[in-house]
Amino acid sequence: MTERVPILQIGNVLLVSIQTDLDDQSVMLLQDELAAEVVETGAHGVVIDITAVDIVDSFVGRMLATIASISRLLDAQTVVVGMRPAVAITLVELGLSLGGVRTALSLDKGLRLLERARAESLEEPEPDAAAGPGADGVGPDAAAGL
């Protein structure tokens, strides 16, 4: 019985709010659909609201980390919002640090974090232009400077 979690689009941000205890197949479906939606809409941010989620095990944890890395590759940022304190404590003891996943305490803070991240990334030079002096990329010039 696969459940489909609705994906909302608000401006350039995709918003997902997990409201039920999803089985593993539904979790995988959500991961695939979110990746497809990021590509289709060109969204620059993904917000996953887990306020209503009372446990995050290694399967859901991996889904969160995977969505974060996929969106990064597609030039979008992921923020997980509303993680309960008991969930955070348990995740650490389980051994999942979710290092690559940005978190915010509320939806509002998550959206603001995305706005700021977007503004900062637009100020940076394009990756193509980053091989010149002063860039921290490992282009030929950077190597010559050693």
């Binding site: 009372d54 446990i55 995050v56 095990d57 290694s58 309960r84 389980l94």
Partner: peptide
């Protein structure tokens, strides 16, 4: 407690899987 509950359910989820 809420934390103990969360820990046990998470462990059970892993072992059931």
């Amino acid at each position: 407690s809420l934390v103990e509950q969360t820990k046990l359910i998470t462990a059970a989820s892993e072992l059931a899987r």
